[in-house]
């Protein structure tokens, strides 16, 4: 590039019309539009594949997936549209290289600039969205803020063992369980650790995921908002039966939860104040 002045465009016959009026630009815009519309029609797929949501933070996650998919459709469409058009329009087939070369223009600074600015803006949007959502996604940025007037969080100690999860409820007289029982609409605080190797505690439908690391305590929390039975899996390869290191998280009403806790032999009765509030 040293010895060549930067030729913007140098088509011989006539000065070109401004970029947006050229026929190829219009055709590409059309292809782009079609691809974008097709893409936008498919944005529900990730969220649909992710299945039901059992917590507000899973709602946020699914919203994020949908938003990103919606944002990426036009971006992908730009590149594919130009590629498809170029290949279809300017294709040359033959065994020998074409006699005449294509026009010798080296760059187009406005386009490069516009392209960089646009990708910068998109990046910023994605980043700001992520920062806003971090507050609600506790594993990444510390614990989520409690909603006003909520009950104090219930602590569950989660221990990953090679290929079995177990859960201890320290406030309920250290009752223990292999299935994670959670009361509906109550903040649950997870203290996660591991007895052996690194596991990753994952309640799929609640969007809860945090590593269980031996010798460390990692924390996360969740407010389950749907009754039902959900999947707890391990998301970090932990040896032989990693695939079978799964159990269930059952979200039940506070009454059912209390009954279950009594049945398990909870020594400390659940304080009545909390019960009233939880029952509401």
């Amino acid at each position: 590039m040293t010895d060549t002045a930067v030729h913007q465009t140098e088509d011989p016959p006539a000065p070109e019309p401004p970029g947006w009026k050229r026929p190829e630009v219009r055709s590409i815009a059309l292809i782009w539009l079609v691809l974008t519309i097709v893409g936008e029609c498919l944005v529900w797929i990730p969220s649909w594949l992710m299945g039901p949501s059992a917590s507000t933070q899973m709602d946020d996650i699914k919203q994020t997936m949908t938003l990103f998919t919606a944002m990426s459709a036009p971006v992908a469409a730009v590149i594919w549209a130009i590629m498809i058009y170029s290949v279809a329009r300017w294709r040359y087939t033959g065994d020998e290289p074409p006699e005449d070369d294509a026009p010798d223009f080296r760059t187009n600074s406005p386009v490069v600039l516009l392209w960089s600015i646009l990708s910068g803006v998109l990046t910023l949007v994605v980043f700001i969205w992520g920062m806003l959502k971090i507050a609600a996604i506790p594993a990444a940025g510390g614990l989520a803020a409690l909603p006003a007037g909520a009950m104090p969080p219930m602590v569950v100690e989660v221990t990953g063992n090679q290929w079995v999860w177990n859960f201890t409820y320290p406030e309920l007289g250290n009752i223990q369980s292999d299935v994670l029982y959670l009361p509906l609409d109550r903040t649950t605080l997870f203290d996660v650790t591991s007895a052996d190797v690194i596991h990753s505690f994952w309640i799929v439908e609640m969007g809860v995921k945090v590593d269980a690391t031996p010798g460390q305590l990692t924390k996360t929390d969740v407010v389950p908002h749907s009754i039902g039975s959900f999947d707890v899996r391990c998301a970090e390869l932990c040896g032989l039966l990693h695939a079978a290191m799964e159990t269930q998280a059952k979200v039940v009403t506070q009454e059912e939860f209390d009954a279950w806790a009594q049945d398990k032999g909870a020594e400390v009765p659940i304080e009545p104040a909390a019960q009233e509030e939880g029952g509401a």
């Binding site: 590629m83 300017w90 040359y92 033959g94 960089s116 990046t123």
Partner: peptide, 24 residues
């Protein structure tokens, strides 16, 4: 996420080079 900016530039270089080429 900032990495997506230079990566995007590479895409531009590719499609910019195909633009009005004699694509053999």
């Amino acid at each position: 996420e900032i990495i997506s900016i230079p990566t995007g530039l590479l895409f531009l270089v590719f499609i910019g080079t195909m633009w009005r080429g004699r694509i053999w």
